[in-house]
Design a protein around this nucleic acid. Sequence first.
DNA 1: GCAAGGTC
Length: 678
Amino acid sequence: MSKSIRIWDLKGRILVIAEKPKAAKKIASALSPTHTMKRIGSITIYEVDSYSSSIIIASSVGHLYQLHTSLRGYPVYSYEWIPLHLADPSKKYIREYLEVLGKLCRGVDYYVNACDYDIEGSVIGYLIIKFNGDERKAFRARFSSLTIEELRKAFNNLTRLDYEMIEAGLCRHELDWIWGINVSRALMKAVEDAVGEKIILSAGRVQTPTLKYVVDKVIERNLFIPLPQYNINITVEKNGEKIRLEYTGNPVEKERDARNIVEKIRGYKYLIVSKVEKKHHILHPPPPFNLGDLQKEAARLYGFSPAETQSIAEQLYLDALISYPRTNSQKLPPTLDYRRILGNISSIKSYRNLVESLISETKGVLTPVEGEKEDPAHPAIYPTGVVPGRLTEKQWAIYDLIVKRFLAVFAPPAKIVHYVVKAATPSHEYVFETKGQVIEEYGWLKYYNFHNYHAGKIPVLKEGELLNIVKATVSESYTKPPKRLTKTDLLRWMESVEIGTEATRAQIIEKLFERKYLYQHRKSSGIDVSEIGFGVVEILEKFFPDLLSVELTRKFEKEMDNIRSGVKKRSEVLEEARRVLTELLGKFDRNRIEAGKQLALRLKIIQNTRKCRVSSCYREGVVNGLCSHHANAVKLVREYYSEWGRRKDITFNEYIDKLRKSKLTGKWVKEVIESELT
DNA sequence: GCAAGGTC
């Protein structure tokens, strides 16, 4: 049945189900400007009557059902959908929505699933109709934005229920559930069997690759050995003004080479300006915010965690100050009345001048820039124009970012000059330079004033000019370890490999902290991995390697596509997953006590009889009494000595002493220096 | 109790 149908052709009572209250309201407005509003308890529903039908628009609040099992132990493959408030007491507001929807479902002739048009929306509406109504009398409305035009089109082109999407969505839920629940239970049971303690551990398709990403970075840092390198610094003079130039060949690897270069330079009295280059760049405004971009900016400017920014944005949304924040889109709805919003914003004192300036600068022609990213259900984040009442300092900070970003998207580009001045020795053997950038026109930077561009000056130098050398020196520096990751780095990584969603990424990062796999490093904004964090990754690497890589997500996505295109059935995909898991869990069981002991060691519940010789280490000694990481550190310290020797005259003992005193040396390297090499 | 996903 590919034929579509108009909602107005249905006779009798029709229930339209939206994904959330705000969407229900927009749908009601699109169906009829004269719709009526009714309250049942604390819930609002809308009614639209025609001569032959009565349409009720009601809303869900996201998922109302959750997968659940009453069985203990693993492997467990039997589960059912139960109301969310029964599974999670913190969600008790769900109950009232479910009661209202249940009652409405039982009193109508037709159903329309008008949840967001994606696999989750298909599941949300389907389960409500399946458990409370009659899916044979159900239709689907398909729209990609909540504008009046799109909505009207969707309700004039209702199709049958989209079973391909529903099946794909149900399958995604079930796959995540059987992988997550079974492997989490296996980890917990292992510890319990080994040492009799109940500790909450978990693993999953999104959280585990994220943990593994941090673990790999921390291993790299902990094993880091800095290398010396040499910079040549030169100061020249012009009209009594001193200018510092950088050697274009910096850094130099060998100390002797650097000293030789400086000796030669000192033999010359002056440098010749060989090139003066000015490049004009146009810097276009950034696109309007999606949630990820907002989280990154709030972290960069105010140090807010992604979860905190999300929570504040949700509060602003519920106060109607901003549009829906859980969006990936960098595009504004073309039908939005930008002029009206700007007018309202200008009544806020701190924005009046900015808005006036924007209107005059653009001559009232408001064309927003947009980014590449899209979202099937929502546009980019924008201020609604509702004037805020009292806001906390943090709420104000987020609101201010959103308003200023919204202003900036209409503003003209900024103009920047990049300059490079090069000067060489008379032999042209050695070339030095000074670079910088200067703002010519502020453009959008005036509205979104959160960038460090300076209106500095360009040094006035001409090609062929001579510059007296006043100083030439060598300075020693060291290669730097990779930076500690922050929560924002994790969020950015999750976005880049496309795991998790706008709504869940920040929560999943927090979950890794709740499990105590990760913790905040004391003296920096960075993240460190705990012993149990390392331990869980090591055990999973051994028994459930699929869970550590983002490839599992890619595999799920392919299976969802197969289901949507009819190539595979949900039951086949689940059958395959059960087969794989049963085998892996079986192998795990045969090694469960040993795995449990390894985890218990890291939890410091038991002591290792064959502990690594490094006193602070809880891992097992496997190579000459050292754990694999510390053994690796010893090997690296020896290997790096030859590279240090090539760069600089130094004895082994002096080298070890340098590493011990340097802040750049990795933690495990320092530990083996203390216990093994002194 | 354990996942990941939606939204107040």
